[in-house]
Each structure stands twice: as C-alpha cells, then as structure tokens.
C-alpha cells in the first residue's frame, strides 16, 4: 500500500473525527460553557467575552466576535484540528506500521489511537485539567501552557520508551506474561513520576465558580477528546481494512499476508 493512500484515509478519518468532536462540543461542551459565561457575566466582565489577552482596545462593551460566531468558529476549529491530527496519525501509522501490535490494520489503528489519546490528551488533562471560561488567570497562561506542553511531550516519550523496553525484555527471552507485567509496571511508574514531579497549575479556581461546573466542564472536555480519537481510530482502521479486503479472498484470515501482497 502506498503512503498516499494511507494519507488519504488519514485525512478522511480526521474529517470524521473533527465532525464527531464538533457534535460533542455542540451537545455537551457548549451548555457548560454557557453556564460558565453566566458566571463571567455576573462579574460584569466585558459582556461574556473571554478575558483580554493581547489587546482590548475595542472596549465599549462591544464584543469582537459574537457568541454565535464563537460557537460556529469552535466547530470549524474542531474539524480543522481533526484533519491535522488525521494527517499526523497517518504518517505515524505508516512509519510504525509493521511494529504496531493489534490484529490487522483495524487493530493497529485502534491501538495507535488509544496510545495517542492517553499520551497527548489524557495525561496532560490529568496534570493540567481543562478550564471553562471564568477560570484561568491570564497572568499565568504562559506558565500553564509550558507545563501542558512538557506533560504532553513526556506522554509521547513514555509511549516511545515503553515499547523499546518491551523489545529489550523480549530480546532476553523472558516469558511473555512477565514481559507484559514489566511493561505495565513501567507505564505506571513513569506516569506516576510525571504526575508527582511536574508542578501543577499555579492558578486557584475563583470562589464564584461552582465545583460542579468545573467537574462537568472537565468531563465534557475529556469526552470530546475521547470521541475525537475513538472516531479517528475506528474510521481509519475500517478504511484500511477495506483497502485490504479485495485481496482477502484466500483461506487466510489475518491481515498480514495481504499486506505483503499489497506492498
């Protein structure tokens, strides 16, 4: 299979993932954002717009972008993010193809999506949790962004190091269950080290933000990310399987042999 056809599948899966994520934003995240904006409004902070970042010369209580435009903008952004993630996913999948575990390309796609979600979405979300509008001190956004990026990169590093460890243990002829147990322990120890050693967000949550609102928003944010990765893994995996299907006429049922044919 050529890289171009893998890439096309990645883009298509990315569009699907972005649309699914946009649906979750619209149905699940936006209602919570509205609750958070009500808190901001109660503070009479520039009419529900997000806090000023670079410039707020427009003032006059006139929002730069209307709420409706922000909702549409959020959906468009979500689809664009989906496409970019789909492209990255396709390149990484092609590069690691023969080394990814999983039965067939569908299994490999789901494994890669699950690892990616854990490394670049779940781990940063656990260390630097997402915040609704009305939470977040603009003065610390640089520091929080840096910490977020560090945790994300450490997540990627763990996802790269543990398979290397796995191969090293396998090379020593250790029994498979022992190897899996050691891999699991390695992941737990490395994740615990990241969570313990990297400093957390310096912000305190303002007293007028209810705990339930914060919890609902963080859960909604994780739901959106999970749906994005799940859709990406499912659609990409199905498209890859479909590509292999016409060659699946023989007596073998694993994907390997056809992959060899379709090179």
């Amino acid at each position: 299979m050529s890289f171009g056809s893998v890439l096309r599948r990645g883009v298509l899966a990315g569009v699907s993932a972005g649309l699914a994520a946009a649906a979750v934003i619209w149905l699940v995240v936006e209602p919570v954002i509205r609750r958070a904006l009500a808190v901001e409004d109660a503070r009479s902070l520039h009419g529900g717009q997000s806090a000023p970042l670079v410039l707020h010369a427009h003032g006059d209580g006139e929002p730069l972008v209307s709420r409706a435009a922000q909702v549409v903008g959020g959906a468009v952004t979500s689809v664009l993010v989906g496409i970019a993630v789909g492209v990255i996913f396709a390149v990484v999948f092609a590069r690691l193809h023969e080394r990814l575990p999983g039965r067939g390309d569908f299994g490999r796609s789901m494994v890669l999506a699950a690892v990616a979600f854990s490394a670049v979405s779940l781990l940063p979300a656990v260390k630097i949790p997402s915040n609704p509008p009305a939470v977040g001190d603009p003065a610390t956004v640089g520091r929080r962004t840096l910490l977020y990026a560090v945790v994300l990169l450490l997540g990627v590093a763990i996802a790269l190091v543990v398979p290397m460890l796995d191969r090293w243990i396998a090379g020593r002829g250790t029994a498979a269950p022992t190897r899996w147990a050691l891999d699991t322990v390695a992941v737990v120890v490395l994740v615990a080290l990241v969570l313990l050693l990297v400093p957390g967000s310096p912000d305190t949550v303002p007293a007028d933000v209810p705990a339930a609102l914060l919890w609902d928003f963080r859960l909604a944010s994780l739901a959106q990310l999970a749906v994005m990765w799940l859709t990406l893994g499912l659609v990409f995996g199905l498209l890859m399987e479909r590509a292999a299907a016409p060659r699946r006429s023989g007596d073998v049922e694993q994907a390997g042999p056809f992959a060899a044919v379709s090179a």
Partner: peptide, 28 residues
C-alpha cells in the same frame, strides 16, 4: 500574538475560543 499582529491574534483567539477550551489547552 507570537506570529500574528495583535488584532489578528485576538480575532483568531475569539473564533477558536470554544474549541480551545474544549480541547483543554490553556486558553486564558
């Protein structure tokens, strides 16, 4: 604002605002 002019960055920030919050990246 690292690459764009301040008004353009502000516009981009407002347009991508909801998705940025939803994606969990530090926003403001």
């Amino acid at each position: 604002g690292a690459l764009l002019s301040a008004p353009a960055a502000q516009m981009l920030h407002e347009l991508t605002h909801d998705a940025r919050h939803a994606l969990g990246v530090p926003c403001h």
